[in-house]
């Protein structure tokens, strides 16, 4: 595991220069965005002024103004497109910043900005059972950490709700199922049934336990575990009472609790067919450049580093390299 200090050295030595160049390009893009706004604003003001001065207020008055405004906006966009566009800024950022961090964390990891964990894997995890209508993602990282194969990417899964109002108009709204980091690892034990660990949103009252036990939506049954601190944060479901406990050994429960305690984001975990799935919810878009923040500051890059490190660190946090069972 790389420390923040090691990363800082790496940043100073081999990233800072690239970032300064990227920062220049970002500023240029931002400058042209502002210029384009100015062009549009001048065009719109000009339209308004000339309209009130020269055009009679006939039936087509508002249409003429509208056309004038549209033309101004189009001119501004074309201006930006021809002069200010930086076609490769985004891909260069991914290559020079995110890829550099991934390879720094471990040379055994590979990064592909356009790829992502497939929908079939997402559904196989059995963490989210809602039907997915729209599924997107990017920033795929895969590779081997010591003895454990891992894959992770950013995922955004949504479902659609179509409502019809009293006038018969239909309206489609999109709702989030999951957005954040989705992580898969080859688990260190063999097992065949599924075990799911979800955030405990109800607490530990007997009322909460009643609902947790009822569990209408899943085929997995509630597993009552003996680790009280674990139960404070999580509720577990499994198809097999013994295998669920075989997977969730007392030490793993402790490690999962510690992992949860050190991160404020919601954590969902499942164990299906000898694979471990971890979904960590985020509200922000991960590993994306911000056009409105200075790029060549360590603080900005530190955030990318910590987000990637968090995922890669799961292997160590959950002790997945401990291969003392028959699975190698």
């Amino acid at each position: 595991m790389k420390t923040l200090k090691e990363f800082k050295d790496f940043y100073n030595k081999s990233m800072h220069e690239n970032l300064s160049l990227l920062e220049k390009r970002r500023k240029r893009i931002l400058r042209f965005v502002l210029w384009s706004f100015l062009v549009a604003a001048i065009g719109i003001l000009f339209t308004m002024a000339s309209a009130s001065l020269f055009f009679p207020k006939d039936d087509y008055y508002s249409l003429k103004v509208f056309v004038g405004v549209i033309i101004s906006i189009i001119v501004a966009i074309v201006f930006f497109y021809v002069k200010g566009r930086d076609k490769t800024f985004y891909s260069d950022f991914k290559e020079q910043v995110i890829k550099a961090i991934v390879t720094f964390i471990s040379p055994d990891l590979s990064y592909n900005p356009k790829n992502y964990i497939g929908l079939d894997s997402f559904q196989r995890s059995r963490i989210f059972l809602t039907n997915v209508d729209r599924y997107r993602g990017d920033d795929m990282v895969e590779g081997v950490v010591d003895k454990t194969k891992i894959w992770f990417s950013e995922i955004n899964a949504e479902y659609k709700r179509v409502t019809t109002d009293s006038k018969g108009k239909t309206k489609t709204t999109w709702h989030r199922i999951f957005k954040g980091l989705f992580f898969i690892a080859d688990f260190n034990k063999h097992f065949t049934t599924s075990t799911i660990v979800l955030p405990n949103r109800l607490g530990r009252s007997s009322f909460a336990r009643f609902f947790q036990k009822m569990n209408i939506s899943r085929r997995e049954k509630h597993i009552s575990l003996e680790d009280l601190e674990f139960n404070k944060y999580f509720v577990a479901y499994g198809e097999d009472q013994v295998e669920a406990r075989y997977v969730l050994s007392t030490s793993l429960m402790k490690r999962i609790t510690d992992f949860k305690k050190s991160h404020k984001n919601p954590v969902f975990i499942s164990f299906v067919n000898s694979f471990l799935y971890v979904a960590i919810g985020y509200n922000k878009n991960l590993f994306e450049p911000s056009y409105f923040k200075k790029l060549n500051r360590f603080k900005i890059v530190q955030e990318y580093f910590e987000d990637i490190q968090l995922a890669v660190g799961i292997v160590e946090d959950l002790n997945l390299n401990n291969r003392i069972w028959t699975k190698q």
Binding site: I223, S224, L225, E226, Q241, V242, E243, A244, R245, Y246, S249, T250
Partner: peptide, 8 residues
């Protein structure tokens, strides 16, 4: 694991 399941 079986013992823990039994205890539960």
């Amino acid at each position: 694991a079986a013992r823990r399941a039994y205890n539960a």
